[in-house]
Design a protein around this nucleic acid. Structure first.
Ligand SMILES: [Mn+2]
Ligand SMILES: [Mn+2]
Ligand SMILES: [Zn+2]
Ligand SMILES: [Zn+2]
Lengths: 141, 141
DNA sequence: TTTCCTCTTTGTAATGGTTACAAGTTATTA
DNA sequence: TAATAACTTGTAACCATTACAAAGAGGAAA
């Protein structure tokens, strides 16, 4: 998890203006552990910043993604989720409740000799299934 | 790679009608090594089956995905790609040319002790970067 | 064959996440 | 302060996908 200060320092380093809106998005995302969507970020911040536009959320998130300061997850088919944690880690999506969990994984332990001549820039691992909470709910019913 | 016969046998086994349209989609997908999109399948088959509707492609692909006879790939942010090969393997997407490559990977060698209480149904591995072909093109320029 | 019934295909309309764009606003520099 | 560049906002457009209803195809029973 990256702190807000680290994120804003990185923005300064890249000569990106630290606007009120961007700080709010960064703050929300770095305090969040649920990999929120644009819609979730928008409706949460709209209360504090009523003038906020959804386009600004998109702009900010796309910008930060390009700079590799955050990660966009495509584990959900129809909506992007965002992650302030850029350390390589796996994501588990529960098919029942939709929640996205983090898990540690040593991706570099992969044997990738087949890709010797490829330049690998990003390694993504998604697991899908049922989370413990939903498993126990099923058992109760 | 699954043969057309294997696929149609599996359809019969599941009491799914083997229509002309479905056979064409299956045939195209099982002969394909490029992980085609709906649009690609549609424009290719439209020549042979002029009455073909894009909705039928969607219906067929969604149906086969539910039955786990094919896999939908979400490695591309804005369009689904499809794969008749349901054996667990990794996918590499070239950021330059967009081509999606297969690679072998022993996914079960992962240490997933963090997910002991999770029911894991699907393991997905996506790599992104630059393919050898595009790497050599860059060097030429 | 004829009728009945169910499943399938097709075209069109709707949905929804995302992006393009232009106008207005804010920050920076001189 | 004026000039310039960057940023935000709202709206419209985009586009992959899904919903829906009507038409079509095919199997089973009689
Ligand atoms: Mn994460
Ligand atoms: Mn494949
Ligand atoms: Zn769950
Ligand atoms: Zn390439």
């Amino acid at each position: 998890m990256k702190t807000l200060k680290e994120l804003s320092d990185e923005l300064k380093r890249n000569n990106i203006r630290l606007t009120h809106q961007r700080l709010k998005v960064l703050e929300y995302l770095s305090n969040s552990k649920t990999h929120p969507t644009v819609e979730e970020i928008y409706s949460a911040l709209k209360k504090e910043v009523p003038s906020l536009s959804k386009t600004t959320i998109y702009n900010t998130l796309n910008y930060l993604s390009e700079l590799n300061l955050i990660k966009a997850l495509t584990i959900d088919e129809n909506e992007a989720h965002f992650d302030a944690d850029t350390h390589t880690h796996g994501h588990f999506k529960c098919s029942a409740c939709g929640k996205i969990y983090d898990f540690d994984i040593n991706i570099d332990s992969f044997d990738t000799e087949h890709l010797n001549n490829f330049e690998i820039n990003e390694k993504i691992v998604y697991f899908k299934g049922i989370c413990p909470r939903c498993l126990s709910n099923i058992n109760i019913e």
